[in-house]
């Protein structure tokens, strides 16, 4: 390993980490408001990937244009699933909500399979590259990162400066208190779930800008697991925590590769995966509210 390689890996990790972080915000938002872990998370990421793929190949629209489209699709799906299923599961035992969200994921995967088949797909949106001497950075990746940061910032603004956002925040902090203060808690639940799903589907678009291949109905499982680790790192109930935890996760994943590669007899790549889950457990052991948690 050289310093150049480590530097290159860290830059790539930072960019990817930002996208990972954005891809986890929806999960954290839903948990923060509804106290439900969305085990079907990855399936929604997959839907976003297909939105980007389909818009690009069928209509020639760039992934940038796919971002609002994905948000709309995602929020529609979110409202649909909320009013059909999730509404009944608020406050239910973990067992019930975990199983229900998992089943939602399966339904999405199977429906997409019926429409698009099981082929692995990809698209080519080539907009040039930047040579950073330690590594080469395609601009599409950079745009994905910028998009992620922008969405995180918009969400921050929405939470703090708008009425709806403030209502959501008050429910996160104290749902009974919010109810007393006249907040329509049922609507906040619906809106938060839809927004959470919307963000997750949107993140699918951004992820394909980073990795525009391997798009398949069953591609989401990996992202569910990554999102869990990142969400816990960020405190599970905090969307911004999740964003910054994503960046940290990306840096750790890529940085540790270079270090593990120095140890003979190890498979560095598998070890980076091991490390991420070891960190997960360590965080839960010493600081269950997350690395960036407040409590």
């Amino acid at each position: 390993m050289t310093w150049e390689q480590l530097g290159g890996n860290l830059i790539q990790g930072l960019i990817l980490g930002g996208v990972y972080g954005m891809a986890t915000m929806g999960l954290s938002l839903i948990f923060g408001v509804l106290r439900v872990v969305n085990v079907g998370h990855g399936a929604f990421v997959m839907v976003g990937a297909f939105v980007a793929f389909w818009l690009f190949t069928a209509l020639g629209l760039t992934p940038i244009a796919a971002i609002p489209a994905a948000l709309v699709v995602g929020m529609a799906l979110g409202f649909l699933f909320f009013y059909s299923v999730m509404r009944r599961l608020v406050g239910a035992p973990e067992l019930t909500s975990l199983l229900a969200t998992f089943a939602m994921g399966i339904i999405l995967e199977e429906v997409v399979k019926l429409i698009f088949g099981t082929e692995f797909r990809g698209y080519n949106w080539d907009v040039g590259k930047m040579d950073l001497s330690v590594t080469v950075l395609p601009l599409a990746k950079l745009y994905a990162f910028i998009g992620s940061v922008a969405i995180a910032a918009l969400l921050y603004f929405w939470f703090n400066r708008t009425r709806a956002g403030t209502a959501v925040r008050s429910v996160v902090e104290d749902s009974e208190g919010a109810r007393v203060c006249g907040v329509n808690v049922g609507w906040v639940y619906a809106l938060s779930f839809a927004l959470g799903i919307g963000l997750t589907v949107t993140s699918g678009v951004l992820l394909t800008m980073f990795i525009p291949v391997g798009i398949n109905p069953y591609m989401g499982g990996v992202y569910t697991l990554k999102a869990f680790v990142i969400a816990v790192l960020g405190g599970l109930a905090s969307p911004y925590g999740a964003f910054f935890a994503g960046v940290i996760f990306g840096l750790i994943e890529n940085g540790s590769y270079s270090l593990f590669a120095l140890v003979p007899g190890l498979e560095p790549f598998a070890m980076t995966r091991f490390l991420s889950f070891a960190i997960l457990l360590l965080i839960l052991l010493i600081r269950p509210t997350g690395l960036l948690g407040t409590k």
């Binding site: 948990f31 106290r35 872990v37 035992p93 973990e94 975990l98 697991l225 869990f228 680790v229 969400a231 816990v232 599970l236 995966r273 091991f274 889950f277 070891a278 997960l280 457990l281 839960l284 269950p288």
Partner: peptide, 16 residues
Amino acid sequence: LGGAYFAIATIGVNEG
């Protein structure tokens, strides 16, 4: 840990 954290922790054990 509480329920949701426990569920995620055990996933972590499995994958790890």
